[in-house]
Amino acid sequence: MRIAFLVAVLAGAVFYTYVAFADLGFMTRTGRLGPGFFPRIIGLAMVAIAIWIIADHLRGRDRGAATPGRWSDVASLTGLALGYAVLLWLLGGFLASVVFLLAALSMLNPGRPLQNGALALVLPLAVYLLFDVLLNASMPPGLVPFPI
Protein backbone atom coordinates (compact mmCIF):
# COMPACT_ATOMS: atom_id res chain seq x y z
CA MET A 1 0.00 0.00 0.00
CA ARG A 2 2.87 2.36 0.82
CA ILE A 3 4.43 1.81 -2.58
CA ALA A 4 1.11 2.68 -4.24
CA PHE A 5 0.99 5.95 -2.32
CA LEU A 6 4.59 6.75 -3.24
CA VAL A 7 3.96 5.98 -6.92
CA ALA A 8 0.89 8.24 -6.83
CA VAL A 9 3.03 11.05 -5.39
CA LEU A 10 5.65 10.44 -8.08
CA ALA A 11 2.99 10.52 -10.81
CA GLY A 12 1.69 13.82 -9.44
CA ALA A 13 5.23 15.20 -9.33
CA VAL A 14 5.91 14.15 -12.93
CA PHE A 15 2.69 15.78 -14.12
CA TYR A 16 3.47 18.96 -12.16
CA THR A 17 6.95 19.12 -13.69
CA TYR A 18 5.64 18.44 -17.20
CA VAL A 19 3.23 21.40 -16.93
CA ALA A 20 6.02 23.59 -15.52
CA PHE A 21 8.19 22.88 -18.57
CA ALA A 22 5.42 22.76 -21.19
CA ASP A 23 3.25 25.73 -20.20
CA LEU A 24 5.23 28.04 -17.96
CA GLY A 25 8.16 30.17 -19.09
CA PHE A 26 11.45 30.12 -17.24
CA MET A 27 12.11 33.81 -18.01
CA THR A 28 9.79 36.69 -18.93
CA ARG A 29 10.26 38.72 -22.12
CA THR A 30 11.91 41.44 -20.07
CA GLY A 31 14.53 39.03 -18.82
CA ARG A 32 13.12 38.54 -15.32
CA LEU A 33 12.44 35.20 -13.68
CA GLY A 34 9.24 33.84 -15.18
CA PRO A 35 6.25 31.97 -13.72
CA GLY A 36 7.92 28.63 -14.47
CA PHE A 37 11.15 29.28 -12.60
CA PHE A 38 10.03 28.13 -9.17
CA PRO A 39 7.73 25.29 -10.38
CA ARG A 40 10.50 23.79 -12.52
CA ILE A 41 12.95 23.67 -9.60
CA ILE A 42 10.30 22.31 -7.25
CA GLY A 43 9.06 19.78 -9.81
CA LEU A 44 12.50 18.40 -10.58
CA ALA A 45 13.34 18.17 -6.87
CA MET A 46 10.03 16.40 -6.17
CA VAL A 47 10.61 13.84 -8.92
CA ALA A 48 14.21 13.21 -7.80
CA ILE A 49 13.31 12.71 -4.12
CA ALA A 50 10.23 10.62 -4.89
CA ILE A 51 12.36 8.29 -7.04
CA TRP A 52 14.98 8.13 -4.28
CA ILE A 53 12.35 7.19 -1.67
CA ILE A 54 10.80 4.57 -3.98
CA ALA A 55 14.26 3.11 -4.69
CA ASP A 56 14.94 2.92 -0.93
CA HIS A 57 11.59 1.20 -0.46
CA LEU A 58 12.23 -1.34 -3.22
CA ARG A 59 15.71 -2.11 -1.85
CA GLY A 60 14.12 -2.69 1.55
CA ARG A 61 16.09 0.11 3.23
CA ASP A 62 13.08 2.10 4.27
CA ARG A 63 9.84 0.21 4.38
CA GLY A 64 8.27 2.82 6.68
CA ALA A 65 6.97 0.03 8.92
CA ALA A 66 3.39 1.20 9.39
CA THR A 67 1.73 -0.51 12.34
CA PRO A 68 -1.08 -2.88 11.38
CA GLY A 69 -4.39 -1.16 11.91
CA ARG A 70 -8.09 -1.13 11.31
CA TRP A 71 -8.39 -0.46 7.59
CA SER A 72 -12.07 -1.39 7.54
CA ASP A 73 -12.93 1.23 10.17
CA VAL A 74 -10.96 3.90 8.32
CA ALA A 75 -12.69 2.92 5.05
CA SER A 76 -16.14 3.11 6.70
CA LEU A 77 -15.48 6.54 8.20
CA THR A 78 -14.00 7.79 4.91
CA GLY A 79 -17.06 6.54 3.03
CA LEU A 80 -19.38 8.26 5.50
CA ALA A 81 -17.33 11.48 5.32
CA LEU A 82 -17.41 11.50 1.52
CA GLY A 83 -21.15 10.82 1.58
CA TYR A 84 -21.49 13.75 3.96
CA ALA A 85 -19.54 15.96 1.53
CA VAL A 86 -22.12 15.19 -1.17
CA LEU A 87 -25.08 15.57 1.22
CA LEU A 88 -23.85 19.03 2.24
CA TRP A 89 -24.24 20.14 -1.35
CA LEU A 90 -27.62 18.44 -1.77
CA LEU A 91 -29.36 19.03 1.55
CA GLY A 92 -27.47 21.91 3.11
CA GLY A 93 -25.48 22.10 6.35
CA PHE A 94 -28.13 21.36 8.96
CA LEU A 95 -29.95 18.40 7.41
CA ALA A 96 -26.79 16.83 5.99
CA SER A 97 -25.18 16.97 9.43
CA VAL A 98 -28.20 15.32 11.07
CA VAL A 99 -28.20 12.50 8.48
CA PHE A 100 -24.42 12.04 8.69
CA LEU A 101 -24.39 11.98 12.49
CA LEU A 102 -27.26 9.50 12.62
CA ALA A 103 -25.46 7.20 10.19
CA ALA A 104 -22.03 7.56 11.81
CA LEU A 105 -23.30 7.15 15.37
CA SER A 106 -25.42 4.13 14.43
CA MET A 107 -22.25 2.52 13.14
CA LEU A 108 -19.91 3.61 15.94
CA ASN A 109 -22.29 3.59 18.88
CA PRO A 110 -24.81 0.83 18.09
CA GLY A 111 -27.70 -0.09 20.34
CA ARG A 112 -28.29 3.42 21.69
CA PRO A 113 -30.79 5.01 19.31
CA LEU A 114 -32.00 7.63 21.80
CA GLN A 115 -28.53 8.88 22.64
CA ASN A 116 -27.55 8.86 18.97
CA GLY A 117 -30.70 10.65 17.89
CA ALA A 118 -30.30 13.33 20.54
CA LEU A 119 -26.67 13.94 19.59
CA ALA A 120 -27.51 14.01 15.89
CA LEU A 121 -30.03 16.79 16.51
CA VAL A 122 -28.31 18.80 19.24
CA LEU A 123 -24.87 19.18 17.62
CA PRO A 124 -26.02 20.54 14.22
CA LEU A 125 -28.48 22.81 16.02
CA ALA A 126 -25.70 24.16 18.24
CA VAL A 127 -23.41 24.70 15.24
CA TYR A 128 -26.26 26.36 13.32
CA LEU A 129 -26.97 28.71 16.22
CA LEU A 130 -23.27 29.52 16.63
CA PHE A 131 -22.41 30.01 12.95
CA ASP A 132 -25.59 31.25 11.34
CA VAL A 133 -27.30 33.16 14.13
CA LEU A 134 -24.55 34.28 16.52
CA LEU A 135 -21.56 34.78 14.17
CA ASN A 136 -23.43 35.47 10.94
CA ALA A 137 -21.15 33.04 9.10
CA SER A 138 -22.36 30.96 6.16
CA MET A 139 -23.78 27.44 6.45
CA PRO A 140 -24.03 25.32 3.28
CA PRO A 141 -27.41 26.20 1.72
CA GLY A 142 -28.13 22.96 -0.21
CA LEU A 143 -29.85 22.44 -3.54
CA VAL A 144 -33.16 21.62 -1.91
CA PRO A 145 -34.51 24.67 -0.05
CA PHE A 146 -35.17 24.02 3.65
CA PRO A 147 -35.94 26.60 6.33
CA ILE A 148 -32.55 25.93 8.06
Partner: peptide
Protein backbone atom coordinates in the same frame (compact mmCIF):
# COMPACT_ATOMS: atom_id res chain seq x y z
CA UNK B 1 -16.36 12.75 19.48
CA UNK B 2 -15.20 11.60 16.03
CA UNK B 3 -18.40 12.28 14.03
CA UNK B 4 -18.76 15.64 15.78
CA UNK B 5 -15.22 16.56 14.71
CA UNK B 6 -16.07 15.70 11.07
CA UNK B 7 -19.13 17.99 11.20
CA UNK B 8 -17.19 20.89 12.77
CA UNK B 9 -14.34 20.49 10.23
CA UNK B 10 -16.76 20.56 7.28
CA UNK B 11 -19.00 23.39 8.44
Amino acid sequence: LAPAIVVICAL
